[in-house]
Simulated assay, not measured.
Amino acid sequence: MKVIAIIGLSTHPNGKETAWQIANSLRPYVDGNQYEVRYISFDDILFDISTWEIEVIDTRTNIALRECAAVMLVNWFSCMMYGDIVYALALYLNHHKITIMNSEALHNRSTSKLSQMMGAALNDILIPRTLFCANITALQQYMRREDFDEPFILKKASASRGQDNHLLSSVSEITDYREKHTQDNPFLVQQFIASNNSDYRFFMVGGKIRLIIQRIGKGDSHLNNISAGALARIIPIEKVSSGAVRTAKTMSRTLYREMTGLDIICEAKTGTPYFLEANPIPQIATGSNVDQKLTALAEGLMEAADGACLSRCL
Rank of each mutant, 00 (worst) to 15 (best):
residue 13 P to S: 09
residue 17 E to W: 02
residue 18 T to R: 03
residue 20 W to A: 11
residue 24 N to T: 07
residue 27 R to T: 09
residue 29 Y to D: 06
residue 31 D to K: 13
residue 32 G to K: 11
residue 35 Y to R: 14
residue 37 V to Y: 02
residue 39 Y to K: 08
residue 42 F to R: 11
residue 43 D to L: 05
residue 43 D to K: 14
residue 44 D to R: 12
residue 44 D to A: 11
residue 45 I to F: 02
residue 45 I to P: 02
residue 47 F to Y: 15
residue 48 D to K: 10
residue 48 D to R: 12
residue 48 D to H: 10
residue 49 I to M: 11
residue 51 T to H: 04
residue 52 W to V: 04
residue 53 E to H: 12
residue 53 E to T: 06
residue 56 V to C: 05
residue 56 V to A: 09
residue 59 T to D: 14
residue 61 T to Y: 15
residue 63 I to M: 14
residue 63 I to C: 12
residue 63 I to V: 15
residue 67 E to V: 02
residue 71 V to M: 07
residue 71 V to H: 02
residue 73 L to R: 05
residue 73 L to A: 03
residue 74 V to F: 00
residue 75 N to F: 00
residue 77 F to Y: 10
residue 78 S to L: 05
residue 80 M to Y: 11
residue 87 Y to E: 01
residue 87 Y to G: 07
residue 87 Y to F: 15
residue 89 L to V: 01
residue 90 A to V: 00
residue 92 Y to V: 00
residue 93 L to P: 04
residue 94 N to H: 15
residue 94 N to F: 03
residue 96 H to T: 02
residue 96 H to Q: 06
residue 99 T to C: 03
residue 100 I to K: 12
residue 102 N to V: 00
residue 104 E to H: 09
residue 105 A to S: 14
residue 109 R to K: 11
residue 114 L to P: 14
residue 114 L to N: 15
residue 117 M to K: 15
residue 129 R to L: 07
residue 130 T to P: 10
